[in-house]
Nucleic acid binder design. Structure first.
Lengths: 148, 148
DNA sequence: GGCATGTAAGTTGTGCACAATTGAATTGTG
DNA sequence: CACAATTCAATTGTGCACAACTTACATGCC
């Protein structure tokens, strides 16, 4: 019980592997749209609520500006979003879907459904897994800044 | 039900977030050893069975040579492993723990326990989550090369 | 032996992640 | 008003991930 933990017995490793596996399943479908998974997440966030700020997207995706800024630059180069300096507060940049970005919503919805069905789990099982993972993440984050 | 899926309702997003959160929890502890999480995984694999080949480690961690090779180079530069060209088959490179790398095992074991307890879950809950994730990964991988 | 086929490790190029820093704009306080 | 502190986005630097490619070596088949 106190022996060295084996890699395959670790929940953390299972998490790390599962995350990469599901992104790998998205990849060929998103490739055909010229998107990566994080870029797709940004679009999902904007389909729900267009015109978010850069930091708003960072909060939603739990990513900092060092990740989001270049990611948005590529999405803009791809023609899916536009960035606009906020008139009221010049520090803020709001991100807006283009016609092309908005048009991807239908296809994006199909892709998430394909991935969901590939999991081999029922809707209820997926919900339960999601909730368990979110509970896990919340617990981890509350203990994040503790020494040892 | 057929509406656009919201980011926070997606199991995939929960997975992506949970994976990064737990690696973020490992980070400060591994930093003090000069390790990253993937480097730590390599050491865990070697503590269990020293002298694996590069491709053997890749199979274990589900990473390709493009990821593992430079990672091992950094671990070697850090003084934790050595790479040796296999005498029998000159294509193979075996990876061996140094004294310093082997000595990290005890501390590594403590770190995984700290992370486990930070999850706020019981041992049984963690096992159940791990098994569910591995089931998920297996299902995903079997459907990986299917068009749509 | 000679050569096609396959395999192992490494390299190159792109795109995340994240820490640390920068610079511009805003806000709080005297 | 002045100016310190804060906020926001972007930049820089390091280390994964992964696709595509390269090079060296091994093996199978004639």
């Amino acid at each position: 019980m106190d022996a060295t933990p084996r890699l395959r017995e670790q929940a953390c490793f299972a998490l790390y592997t599962a995350s990469r596996a599901v992104i790998g399943l998205y990849r060929p479908m998103l490739d055909s749209l010229g998107l990566t998974y994080p870029q797709f997440l940004v679009l999902m966030s904007l389909w729900e609520h267009d015109g978010r700020t850069v930091s708003g997207l960072g909060d939603e995706l739990q990513l900092d500006s060092g990740t989001v800024s270049p990611l948005l630059k590529r999405l803009e180069a791809g023609g899916y979003v536009e960035r606009r300096r906020d008139a009221g507060d010049e520090r803020r940049v709001t991100v807006h879907l283009t016609e092309a970005g908005a048009a991807l919503e239908r296809r994006g919805c199909e892709i998430t459904q394909v991935v969901g069905s590939a999991s081999g789990m029922s809707y209820d099982e997926l919900i339960a897994l999601r909730d368990k993972l979110n509970e896990f993440t919340t617990a981890i984050r509350t203990r994040e800044h503790t020494t040892e």
